[in-house]
């Protein structure tokens, strides 16, 4: 049962196509796990549809080139027929959009230790925001940190708790600038999260701060 969802601004930004790549990734991954947010997203898409229906430029209605339809029909006739795809999602830990970035499930991640038994794997995205997987052993904590921007954390396996609440599989925490938190993985199962931020994290301990440039977080 997912209790922590995406907010309207993220859903609308994703629907409108205005988010950085790393944010697109976490939104797409959460929606793969959460039909409630999928329905909300598709209702924002319906806003786009309504705007498309009335789309004109400042100078009025737009016309296509004269032979436009003929050109498109010619292209359609040349293209090979699309294979009919039957999608049965395989039972994987990571939803499809995330698997594409990792190259598989958790074992395919390029993990690096960041201290306290916590590991991370940075995912390749455009630089305007960053995405990484976090592996927090059961019962361990991610170093206390605040952020300059927005940090989103999506639980893929296990659960963590912080000052705000408990976050289980599929839950997403939306942490803004003013939240300083210490996520602690629940005992019993190691916790794997996808974390995305639009600004570098700020660690409060001296050592993590010195390491920050090297850890790329």
């Amino acid at each position: 049962m997912i209790r922590h969802h995406l907010n309207d601004a993220l859903l609308m930004g994703y629907s409108a196509g205005q988010l950085p790549e790393a944010f697109n990734l976490i939104v797409a991954t959460h929606i793969s796990m959460c039909d409630e947010c999928r329905a909300r997203l598709e209702s924002f898409d319906a806003v786009g549809g309504a705007l498309l229906e009335t789309a004109v430029t400042d100078t009025g209605e737009v016309a296509m080139a004269e032979d436009s339809l003929a050109q498109v029909m010619a292209r359609i006739r040349q293209a090979p027929p699309e294979p009919r795809k039957v999608q049965r999602p395989e039972p994987c830990l990571f939803p499809a959009p995330l698997r594409k970035y990792v190259g598989g499930d958790a074992e395919a991640g390029r993990w690096r230790a960041v201290g306290g038994g916590v590991r991370q794997a940075i995912l390749p995205t455009a630089r305007d925001a960053s995405a990484r997987l976090l592996y927090i052993p059961a019962g361990m904590a991610v170093p206390d940190h605040g952020h300059r921007g927005t940090e989103l954390t999506l639980v893929l396996q296990g659960a963590f708790s912080d000052a705000v609440d408990r976050f289980g599989p599929g839950d997403i925490e939306i942490a803004t600038e003013d939240l300083e938190h210490t996520p602690v993985a629940e005992p019993g199962m190691d916790c794997i999260c996808l974390a995305v931020t639009d600004a570098p994290l700020r660690f409060n301990g001296m050592v993590p701060r010195l390491l920050q440039p090297f850890l790329k977080i």
């Binding site: 196509g17 950085p20 790549e21 697109n24 990734l25 797409a28 991954t29 929606i31 793969s32 999928r38 997203l41 009919r84 039957v86 999608q87 049965r88 999602p89 939803p95 499809a96 959009p97 995330l98 594409k100 970035y101 995205t125 455009a126």
Partner: peptide, 13 residues
């Protein structure tokens, strides 16, 4: 020119 990963799709045919 940004990549925009899509959610896993539900089967439809």
């Amino acid at each position: 020119k940004a990549r925009r990963p899509e959610p896993e799709d539900l089967p439809w045919g």
